[in-house]
Design a protein around this nucleic acid. Structure first.
Length: 773
DNA sequence: CAGTGAGCGAGCTTCCGCTTGACTT
């Protein structure tokens, strides 16, 4: 029996620490929290100072039993959970549940998993900080009260199974408000005028200088008249300035910045990033992936600088200590970094390798020298007007950290002027105008959130924690408050005026805009829930609510406030409001009247119906049933027009008949379709319009699908008609009834024999072909 | 899997933060 039992939160951490501590220490993990508030009722005794009722979670029973046994036999139990509010509470729960005695219990903490840090922690034990534990209990109880009182209200007033909470409801609000800003956005346009000059350098090299008119012009007429005035003007370099500049590397990754960069650079969802990072962590490749700290251990800094020196030389080394500045950071861990800086790459699948390399580069770059730039500014005047054209250039004098890593920007519309080296010009040089172009540019609405940019925003507001960013993003999508999807853009006309060869020509260009890729959109139910909460519980949705209660949790942690008093102050008025809303609040359906149907004279309205958002003509009475039509993907209660609503009643429509059967066009769950003989054929996205499609085109789609289906069958067998080799979306596969089997890459699908197929079926795992919901 | 659109009303849903598997695709 070991003398010492050390308990940490994560099993991977336990494994590492055990190596540092040697044979007298047994290191075990609690796998996070071991107990939580009971789920039935509130799990809180409201009338008894909010006394929490804690229950060991069913999936933790085994761990707790084992720890109990080990603790009994140990001389000293070392509680080594993280040094933050939650970690302190975990230690306290362990202390309580394991029935530990104060004299044989030590509380230790460390912020980095290095031998020195651990040994130092063992030398400096303390006892559990009950104030910090109480701050956690207050946090836990508050979240339960908010979540478990608001959610049932939503079930009653909107629809069952909905949820609300301090964190998720604010995340939804951000999306809803952004969408409204976008809807209210007024597009404006202005003309940017660019002058292209031919430059012949002293050695005969020919290049071009692009200079832009300093101001923007709003009217076409003014743009045109400016070009007319400048026709034949003499252009002259009025000023050349050079300014030094520098760029510094970003700090190493935290959970939030890793999620953002993995999304921008690798296209990963936040959940995907966390799953991959977890695997890297468990394999000992990186440090802990749920952190809000940008701090690096001394070991990591030294490791980085020796790698940098070996790869790029001493000039590239510039070690730094970054300071965490995000709101509410608790800094129990290091930044996310490679365990061994000398490994620039690792074994593993391609996503693991790419994420690792991203982390390696970011960490390395954070300890590298600034990049040194020289910015050049050339101002060009002209003989006919006082207008000034400006060219800017940027030359990298020393690349520094840029050799390794450049952070990406969320702003996809950022001007990608490739600022390079400008030709050598001096004041007074006369320039030869090749062409001048005034192009109409449109203003851009605020960008929709991606999963990752929403995480960034939440972190900025201090809402949520590294361990909850990904789950929260999933929850609001699971509740269908928010949907992540692509949306088609549209086209608009941009006007262009060109001056070349002394003549001015006007033309137009069609440009695409508004295409969205993997963006978060509010659903109608999300919007209705948000508006309901905003109406009755404004203070909870306030962006500062978390910050305000966090300040009070800090007071509790400092011992300056009693936690139950803090909760009582919040709960009394909150609960009254819940009761009041329950009694007097109306059912919320997001109803909106669009107008009156010209044919029947009945009112036309939209609302959330039993199966989702609908348009309704007429009001239900005893004699009469209203007509209904579901809203389509991309339409919303808030923005649908009367005309669009009425169009929904035009489908499904018969366009004619084919092979003596009706051909019907409609819109279903998977988009617009042609129906013929109870079979469905999808319309081509972006090509066919269900309102205008002709019979001929519909027949073409039917026949196209029929021939595709014929090609789908690669081979069938006389021995067993159930078994078929088919061509699917992901390549050839074997189908047996409803189960599918993968064909090994080494085999040629077309030449598989019946016996070989049988073998594959026998070996392969049977998967049910589709999950039914 | 693509027609539905009510209220006799069982029993259930739900929060945030710590962790990792056991499950599918």
């Amino acid at each position: 029996m070991e003398e010492n039992l050390v308990i940490v939160e994560s099993p991977a951490k336990a494994k590492t620490i055990e190596k540092f501590l040697g044979k007298d220490y047994l290191v075990k993990s609690s796998f996070g929290h071991i107990r939580d508030l009971a789920k039935k009722n509130l799990g809180i005794d409201i009338n008894n100072s909010y006394k929490p009722e804690y229950i060991v979670s069913p999936d933790k029973k085994k761990v707790v039993d084992e720890l109990k046994k080990l603790a009994k036999g140990a001389k000293v139990v070392w509680l080594a959970s993280d040094e933050d509010r939650e970690g302190e509470a975990i230690s306290w729960h362990l202390y309580e549940v394991l029935g530990l005695k104060p004299e044989k219990t030590r509380r230790i903490v460390f912020h980095e998993i290095t031998k020195d840090a651990i040994l130092n922690a063992i030398k400096n034990p303390r006892f559990i900080d009950i104030n910090l534990v109480n701050a956690q209990q207050a946090r836990r109880v508050l979240d339960r009260l908010v979540g478990f009182e608001l959610s049932p209200l939503l079930w009653k007033k909107i629809k069952p199974s909905l949820s609300a909470g301090r964190v998720q409801s604010v995340a939804v609000k951000l999306i809803v408000e952004r969408e409204r800003e976008i809807n209210a956005f007024q597009v404006s346009s202005s003309f940017r005028v660019g002058a292209h000059f031919n430059i012949v350098e002293p050695k005969g090299k020919v290049s071009e200088l692009l200079a832009e008119l300093e101001k923007r012009i709003t009217e076409v007429s003014s743009a045109k008249s400016l070009l007319e005035k400048l026709n034949g003007a003499e252009f002259r370099v009025a000023d050349v300035t050079k300014k030094p500049g520098k760029k510094s590397p970003s700090p190493p990754f935290t959970t939030s910045t890793l999620q953002q960069e993995a999304s921008r650079k690798l296209g990963f969802s936040v959940a995907q990033t966390m799953t991959i990072a977890q695997r890297l962590y468990e394999a000992g490749k990186i440090t802990y992936m749920r952190t809000d700290s940008v701090n690096l251990s001394q070991t990591a800094i030294l490791g980085s600088s020796s790698v940098i020196e070996a790869l790029y030389g001493k000039d590239y080394v510039h070690t730094r200590n970054f300071v965490t500045k995000s709101k509410g950071a608790q800094e129990a861990h290091e930044a996310i970094r490679p365990t061994f800086m000398e490994n620039s790459s690792i074994d593993g699948n391609s996503t693991e390798q790419r994420l690792y390399e991203l982390i390696w580069k970011r960490t390395l770059a954070s300890q590298m020298a600034d990049a040194i730039l020289e910015k050049t500014n050339i101002r060009v005047s002209n003989s006919n007007t006082p207008e000034i054209f400006v060219a800017t250039g940027e030359v990298l004098k020393f690349d520094g950290f840029l050799k390794v890593y450049m952070e990406s920007s969320d702003d996809e519309n950022a001007d990608e002027e490739s600022k390079g080296l400008l030709p050598p010009l001096k004041v007074g040089d006369i320039l030869d105008l090749r062409k001048m172009e005034a192009a109409e540019k449109f203003s851009l609405h605020p960008p929709r959130y991606t999963e990752a940019s929403l995480v960034k925003k939440m972190e900025d507001l201090g809402i949520g924690r590294p361990s909850t960013y990904a789950p929260t993003i999933s929850t609001i999508q699971q509740r269908e408050y928010v949907i992540k999807e692509d949306r088609d853009g549209s086209t608009r006309i941009s006007r262009i005026i060109v001056l070349s060869n002394k003549t001015i020509k006007e033309s137009q260009k069609e440009e695409n805009f508004g295409f969205e890729k993997s963006k978060l959109f509010p659903t109608d139910i999300g919007t209705v829930v948000n508006d309901f909460l905003e109406q009755y519980f404004k203070e909870i949705l306030d962006y500062n609510f978390t910050a305000t209660v966090e300040a009070e949790f800090d007071q509790i942690a400092e011992g300056n406030m009693i936690w139950s008093t803090m909760i009582d102050k919040f709960y009394k008025p909150f609960h009254l409001k819940v009761d009041d809303t329950d009694k007097t609040g109306e059912r919320s359906k997001g109803e909106r009247v669009l107008g009156t149907d010209a044919v029947s004279g009945k009112p036309v309205l939209v609302k959330i119906g039993r199966y989702g958002p609908v348009v309704q003509i007429g009001i239900a009475t005893d004699e009469e049933k209203p007509r209904f039509a579901s809203l389509q993907k991309g339409q919303s209660l808030e923005t649908i027009t009367m005309e669009e609503a009425m169009d929904l009643f035009k489908l499904p429509r018969k366009v004619g008949s084919f092979e003596d059967n009706d051909v019907v066009i409609g819109i279903g769950r998977f988009g617009p379709y042609v129906r013929h003989l109870s079979k469905f054929y999808s319309l081509k996205r972006g090509v066919d319009d269900p309102m205008t499609i002709t019979l001929d085109r519909a027949i073409e789609l039917i026949e196209g699908k029929r021939s595709d289906d014929k090609n789908k069958l690669i081979k069938s067998f006389a021995e067993d008609p159930e078994i078929q080799i088919l061509n699917g979306r992901y390549g050839p596969y074997i189908a047996v009834g409803k189960s599918n089997f993968k064909i090994p890459k080494s085999k040629d699908p077309a030449s598989l024999s019946y016996e070989e197929c049988k073998a594959i079926i026998k070996a392969g795992p049977t998967k049910p072909s589709k999950k039914k919901k």
